[in-house]
Computed example of a mutant assay.
Amino acid sequence: MTAASKAAPGTAAPPALEVRGLTAGYGGREVLSGLDLALPQGEVLCLVGHNGAGKSTLMKLLFGLHQPEAGSIHLRGRAIQPRPDAMAREGVAYVPEGRGVFPGLSVRENFALALWSAGLEKVEGEARTEEVLKVLPRIREFWTRRAGQLSGGQQQMVSVGRALLSRPSILLLDEPSIGLAPKTFQDLMTPIRELQQRLGMSILLVEQNVGEAFAVSDRVVVMKSGQVIFRGVPADLADHARLMEMF
């Protein structure tokens, strides 16, 4: 895992990831407009907003899958131009919306492919696999089954597990609860939260299931039409009616 930059005594650590004045869109249609947002080191930031608010676009920009039209992106205080390979080397992992698995391969083969792609030797790969299976032990139950035969919740566990193989210090999770029952989402996120707190990982969680997501988050940001309209902590939005009023 890439270690997070340490701040000098008496100074605050820079954000794990930060965007300043970020503007981006598709085919001339603006999606993000001068966005300012920071993911604090060692915290879970939950990003919520209506469909089309720009949340998934932001995630793609942070991982280098889309390019901004204006503004800057900073990794641990350093301005960067993200590319997927470079972000992976910097300890950033991205789990996109939907099921990021190879359906024709078994779960074991999905893991093996991720390890091969990362260039890890057999012994190191086995060690990392065991680490992930300790965090998400239910994966053992369907280890030899084809990923395409799994339920949505099982596929999501595999997708997140593959991301954890890289021992990320920053994890980008885009709508992990899609298609999942609340209990299944809890089964997925509770051990991730425990791992995050133990290792000091930084997580940006885009999520519509606010009740379950707030339970594992330190801070909340609400987006609307490509801009931030609220920053706070989950307790600020304990009355979900207040959140609904923002839209």
Score class of each variant (00 low, 15 high):
33 S>E: 12
31 V>Q: 00
205 L>E: 03
65 L>R: 00
30 E>V: 14
80 I>T: 07
100 G>S: 06
165 L>N: 06
98 G>R: 00
36 D>E: 10
53 A>T: 03
54 G>L: 03
43 E>M: 13
49 G>N: 07
128 R>S: 15
57 T>V: 07
108 R>Q: 15
235 A>I: 14
85 D>R: 14
139 I>V: 15
202 S>T: 06
74 H>R: 15
123 V>F: 03
191 P>E: 08
71 G>R: 08
242 R>F: 15
214 F>Q: 09
164 L>E: 00
227 Q>M: 11
165 L>W: 08
11 T>D: 13
16 A>S: 08
14 P>W: 10
156 Q>I: 07
126 E>D: 13
132 V>K: 06
68 P>Q: 08
5 S>Q: 15
65 L>A: 07
243 L>I: 03
239 D>E: 13
130 E>G: 01
202 S>L: 09
212 E>S: 09
189 M>V: 10
23 T>R: 11
61 L>C: 02
44 V>T: 15
12 A>H: 11
144 T>H: 14
51 N>Q: 11
110 N>E: 01
64 G>Y: 01
90 E>G: 08
14 P>E: 04
201 M>T: 14
77 G>V: 07
119 G>F: 05
105 L>C: 03
39 L>W: 04
83 R>K: 12
184 T>L: 15
71 G>P: 02
86 A>L: 03
22 L>M: 07
239 D>K: 13
175 E>N: 03
213 A>F: 07
191 P>K: 01
3 A>Y: 12
46 C>N: 05
222 V>T: 10
60 K>A: 04
244 M>D: 14
46 C>Q: 13
197 Q>H: 12
84 P>Q: 00
18 E>S: 14
238 A>D: 13
233 V>Q: 14
118 A>E: 00
133 L>N: 06
212 E>A: 15
114 A>E: 07
69 E>M: 14
180 L>F: 04
46 C>P: 06
16 A>F: 00
230 F>K: 06
157 M>S: 05
123 V>Y: 08
195 L>D: 08
204 L>F: 05
221 V>I: 10
79 A>Y: 10
84 P>M: 02
78 R>N: 07
246 M>N: 07
203 I>Q: 00
143 W>Y: 13
155 Q>K: 10
191 P>D: 07
167 R>C: 01
72 S>E: 12
211 G>E: 11
15 P>G: 00
158 V>R: 01
169 S>H: 01
246 M>Q: 09
169 S>L: 04
232 G>M: 11
203 I>N: 06
99 R>P: 01
195 L>H: 12
182 P>M: 08
82 P>G: 04
156 Q>S: 02
94 Y>C: 00
55 K>G: 08
152 G>R: 03
125 G>V: 04
126 E>W: 13
97 E>R: 08
162 R>I: 05
118 A>I: 05
234 P>I: 12
144 T>P: 10
199 L>D: 14
140 R>L: 10
185 F>R: 02
221 V>Q: 09
208 Q>E: 11
184 T>Q: 09
67 Q>P: 05
55 K>L: 08
243 L>R: 09
128 R>H: 11
12 A>R: 05
102 F>M: 05
64 G>P: 02
178 I>E: 13
169 S>G: 09
101 V>L: 06
118 A>S: 09
23 T>G: 04
185 F>L: 15
204 L>Y: 02
20 R>P: 00
183 K>A: 04
196 Q>E: 08
185 F>Q: 09
59 M>E: 04
242 R>H: 15
96 P>K: 01
